[in-house]
Amino acid sequence: MKVIVEEDKCCGAGTCVLVAPDVFDQRDDDGIVMLLDEAPGPELHDAVREAVSVCPAAAIGLIE
């Protein structure tokens, strides 16, 4: 699994951080998504898929 984020779509809600804090964080200055792990291990896949699905800006993509 490879995770892709589109920073210019991100709305800074932080939903991804609430769902998958090991994979996503937010920048301190503007809250835009930071990818901590672009190839997360299998134990994180469910959480990442949920983060993709519930992102309110549809700013996260996956290549599986």
Binding site: G14, Q26, R27, D30
Partner: peptide, 8 residues
């Protein structure tokens, strides 16, 4: 207000 991460 312009502090998304801190708000969360």
């Amino acid at each position: 207000w312009n502090m998304p991460k801190q708000t969360r």
